[in-house]
Write a protein that binds this DNA or RNA. Structure first.
Lengths: 230, 230, 230, 230
DNA sequence: GATGAATGAGCTTTCATTCAT
DNA sequence: AATGAATGAAAGCTCATTCAT
């Protein structure tokens, strides 16, 4: 089972890079490329293992063995498992943030309900394509999203909390603009996000969801129009 | 005992399963009562820690320290952490199963849509009261429900899988009877369960969801009627 | 694996009784009989386990479980595992000692070679019948005889050392009287005892040694006449 | 290394088996040499302790403390105590096997009794020198040889059984060729091996056996000519 | 007296992290 | 830079011994 951190774990410090130190060589040069390639190899190996056995259960030893590098190399590229997870989530997290920000801008600029709808639809498409691009990281996110914010799960929870806050804000905005019924914004957004995540988790876990091309329409219909037969 | 009881945790029912061996002494006698009390104390201490730090991160040492008993005592009452989790989930799991079974019976016996609705409403009430009775176990369930089915999480996943299958069956039945729109039963049930769990998780995590008495109506409305303003 | 003694192990103190304290009740009375019966039950259970898994590997828990008594009862009848082994070996050890003493007396009283031979033959018969009477203890003795004199093995080694010393004395006496060739007494006795023990061990371990009625003659012949064909 | 080497134990060959994984680095290179040296240091420390206190009673903690390495290091070199014992016995076991095989070849090729005798004498010499080369392992073998084949004792029993089978075969062959009297081969070989082992055990245990140079002749005489005076 | 619950030191094994090579 | 050996603090689990019932 998982081991305690020997030293006090980093709880914040989300610098844009997780690397221990500045490295020599020009950015984009050969050294930098090798460095990035190695980083990717380790991160991918880790991701695969995380999906199979969970963040906590996977050891550094296993990651490096899977990646085919020496154990010591891990610490040249990442400060620890938390740092690796940080790096793993950074691209997705950034992209999601950006999409949500863009959506908010569009909403604020929208002058009518049609424009609002367009903004949401666009958000949906963007998130959908992000899911496809970052399948495994999204899957890991869904697996670990509700665990306590401890150790390697800190970055996951950071993203989850950010997402939740953003979703609430957006929902609140939509409600203010009369696009949604006047329920508690938090409640509404929780329902929407919860339904979506569950579906996504089932899908990424390999569950058969029937005709996949139908799903987006079904979800939209379920969430927006309700499940009750008419 | 030279060690003092550190605290007396709130007691929830803990199943008398997983004990290493059959014990002598009359059931209900002094020894039997002590045994059950000790079992509860350990289980409650563990539950508290699991909620704070997650199933995997909590050690037997910490559980026994929190419970105020010797480490060795743990193994007199539970085979290992998995056994403890099993015992922790058994009462809830059994009760949920029973409620779902009853609902299914009612549905099968229902002759019209009104009767069906009554069956579902009743299920909702039953589950709601189970949630209140087993708050912490439900919370733990929601936290660990998506992690890999490994070690101590096995019982959690067992319950999750059982629940999912049941929900799907029930949804399918409702759809056949024309109560729900003719979507894929799995998709529909995932949406409903996902929304509900997310809400519950937020609530149990201490999130302010506004007027709690309104929530059931909001959920019903959201799920059954859709979120779109009319 | 085996555990360290928590307190300093008894190294001598071979009082004729291993019981913790004097007990009430007349010797031979009901209490005394029950006590002896219980002692036998525990000792027999232990002996069986010792033969299967060795002195060190068997736990008090297993012994009492096998004997069908409570763990605490063990300590009413024996001080610890060493005490039990002491008790287990006492009858055999005493009888062997007595037989050896008698043999020595006979030898010292023997006036000619014929009388000496009779003494040795008689010793052989006596030891043979002791082996049959104490099969399992003899088997255990052979198994543990060469292990370090630590913990529960102390009584075994005590008997082994006593036996070796006696055998050497007897051999020396036989040589002085011209019954054996003038080799080092220790060397001679080691050879004789070693061959005998090995045979006995094989026999008690269930090895097929052919026609058992032939063995004594074979051994005598082998040891006394040599293995070389004439 | 902050820890000092506590002592440099006498080195005997330790087989490079049982290592957790294949290691990189050129065989014979610095790393490989260090690895072998460390393996030897641990194995020797263990052997010393095994002789003092027996296979079962010695803990990994004690072994590593005695060897002056960290506890974790043990597991880099051996899978567990059984693995270590395996490694400890491999060289001797291999050499003994080879000697016995060679003897068998010689016997099969022998055309007369003289040649047979030469084969046996040669075996005796080879085994004698193996005993001197692997004194401590032989001593340990004799100590543990009769214990139940459990845990760390498994390799010891494996060697014991192999040896016994070989000895029986060889004895049978000698008898067929008319070199030995027509006794049960198993009985004869048990007697010979038992006498030899006992002697060896006494010798290795520090017993004074008189003029050591005389022993081989005495043994030969005892075993082949019988102990009876003429 | 008998029982078995409680205790906690002790054992095996793992693994994050450091560091010599 | 990369490697993997070394370290030692935990973690899981066992079990001799004591003691309340």
């Amino acid at each position: 089972m998982s081991r305690k951190k020997r030293f006090l774990p980093r709880l914040e410090a989300v610098a844009p890079t997780q690397l221990p130190k500045r490295r020599p060589g020009l950015p984009g040069g050969v050294r930098d490329q090798n460095r990035q390639a190695r980083t990717r190899v380790i991160a991918q190996a880790a991701l695969r293992l995380f999906l199979e056995r969970g963040l906590e259960a996977v050891t550094i030893d296993e990651i490096t063995a899977q990646a085919g590098v020496a154990k010591g190399s891990f610490y040249r590229y990442f400060t620890d498992k938390t740092g690796l997870v940080d790096a793993l989530f950074l691209p997705l997290s950034t992209a999601v943030d950006a999409a949500l920000s863009r959506c908010q801008v569009h909403i604020d600029a929208a002058s009518d309900r049609a424009a609002l709808s367009v903004a949401y639809e666009r958000l949906g498409l963007e998130l959908g394509s992000l899911v496809l691009m970052h399948r495994d990281v999204v899957h890991l996110y869904l697996m670990e999203r509700r665990g306590p914010a401890q150790g390697a799960r800190v970055p996951v929870r950071r993203m989850a909390d950010a997402l939740e806050a953003r979703a609430e804000t957006l929902t609140g905005r939509a409600r203010e603009r009369g696009l949604l019924r006047p329920f508690n914004a938090r409640v509404s957004s929780l329902a929407v996000v919860g339904a979506g995540e569950q579906m996504l988790y089932a899908f990424l876990s390999g569950k058969d969801l029937g005709d996949l091309t139908q799903i987006p329409a079904q979800i939209t219909s379920l969430i927006l129009d309700g499940v009750r037969a008419r």
